[in-house]
Design a protein around this nucleic acid. Sequence first.
DNA 1: AATAATAATCGTAATATTGCGATAGAATTA
DNA 2: TAATTCTATCGCAATATTACGATTATTATT
Lengths: 114, 114
Amino acid sequence: MGTTKTEIFSDHQNQIASFAKGLGHPARVAILEHLFKLNACVCGDLVQEIGLAQPTISQHLKELKNLGLIKGNVDGARVCYCIDHDNWRDMKEVLNAFLNIDQATLDASHSICK
Amino acid sequence: MGTTKTEIFSDHQNQIASFAKGLGHPARVAILEHLFKLNACVCGDLVQEIGLAQPTISQHLKELKNLGLIKGNVDGARVCYCIDHDNWRDMKEVLNAFLNIDQATLDASHSICK
DNA sequence: AATAATAATCGTAATATTGCGATAGAATTA
DNA sequence: TAATTCTATCGCAATATTACGATTATTATT
């Protein structure tokens, strides 16, 4: 109990949910926005910018990295993070296809419900 | 502790995260897909289709309803659920704008990180 | 070599999420 | 009206998430 039953869903459904879940926290949204704006930055910058403790930011960075949306390069004592543009595009395609599901069913858009 | 610090983020960031979070579970993805396919259906149909217990489906429906993505109409002893197309479009715009953030920064897409 | 700076990890507390059995309420049917 | 059907809600257990202090490991600086 308490665990999502991923086995009963399709890979595609699980993939959509994973990407969405990754974007489902404002700190991660803020991190991604900041990385897009500055092209690259180190963990300390994000701690300053966002205002969460360093371990918290580090944890969110790890999640984004596991999802494949960002990559980190060691740069001396620092770690330089930036967007993984290829994977971002892939995610965008997956989520866009899902979001546009209403276009594929336009003819049915005259809802039965009021 | 344990609670997301929404106060330190912008309304826009929180809105993106809320929508993404709502799509961040495969059961809710499956529910939405099924509603788009059938245009409308009752809770019992989704229990059959998806294979989670009735209270679990009911709970996911509630979340989608709170997010505004679906609406439910009482139809006798049943409740007929369907997509709220207007709100779906709104969500799509919000998420699309965020996903296309890489287009707005195309010139910078030659990452510093390898 | 000692100190400082940076970021990851550990450990923990608080809260949220997921899932379901049991129950309740409301409408339908017998 | 009694039995049945359908869905929401309650209550609970298991797990996940969020946040952060303390610590560790690594590199830079003095």
